[in-house]
Write a protein that binds this DNA or RNA. Sequence first.
DNA 1: TTGCTCCTCACGTCACGTGAGGTGGC
DNA 2: TTGCTCCTCACGTCACGTGAGGTGGC
Lengths: 143, 143
Amino acid sequence: MSTTYRIGEVSERVGITTRTIRYYEELGLLGGAPGDRSKGTHRLYDDDDVSRLTELLRLRDLLGLTLEELTALAETGQARAALRDEWAETATDEERAAIVERAFPLVERQLELVRGRIEKLAEFARELEGKLEQLAAERRKLR
Amino acid sequence: MSTTYRIGEVSERVGITTRTIRYYEELGLLGGAPGDRSKGTHRLYDDDDVSRLTELLRLRDLLGLTLEELTALAETGQARAALRDEWAETATDEERAAIVERAFPLVERQLELVRGRIEKLAEFARELEGKLEQLAAERRKLR
DNA sequence: TTGCTCCTCACGTCACGTGAGGTGGC
DNA sequence: TTGCTCCTCACGTCACGTGAGGTGGC
């Protein structure tokens, strides 16, 4: 019995439009198995959905992944969410262990991507600092 | 008299398609003042054009800026390139000084954006490390 | 009942991708 | 002259933006 939110609340909390949420559902990135909800009724989300969506958006915004690339990495979120679900309470230890083993390489992959991006940005920063020094030198020369 | 390249060579060197280069020219992001070239003739680029394009692509790829945002920040490149041009040799010291003063805040702005992005990625990395530890704990618990 | 938020089409847009058909320089 | 790369339309696509017109829950 967790709190539920409507699409407008979710979109506001995570800072995107409702259109984006519906589009992600359409692509299968978010829950929304066709049949979860009778046509025309309101979509409902819980805190797990929100944190899963937030994770997707960070991967999208910070790494610039396409939605197709996101799909591959997002399985992590699905699996990890499953661990917290009521479903997990009825799962066997073997099933839980399998989920953990599958999640591991995906989280590691994400971490690699993030660290690689940090490296590139650090190099970019160093170059920009060089440019600033160069400009400062040019300025001194001109007076 | 610097070396010139055709669009295919440039696209290969910087890792994008020729379509993208033409599109950027269409938007006014790259040289291509309408009249620089008689219609139908080959586009020609020099090393300055290539480094300017590379700078644009880094801002696009590493920071995820839109082409509109890029336009604002790219003036830096234009101005800084002008300093190296033959044009610069005929420019007065006042003109050169003005270019330097205009370039300063733009490069500083870029550096701010890059550092901000690094901060966000660093936090993301810390969270992912936390997730890995959590998964490791879960794994130990399960056997 | 009155709003407000939700719903489903569906066309528009940004940043290109991808041919189609044709011209120009080593 | 033969290729190869270039050229200009122009339609397609991805990831949504933006209404139009209508239904449903406090």
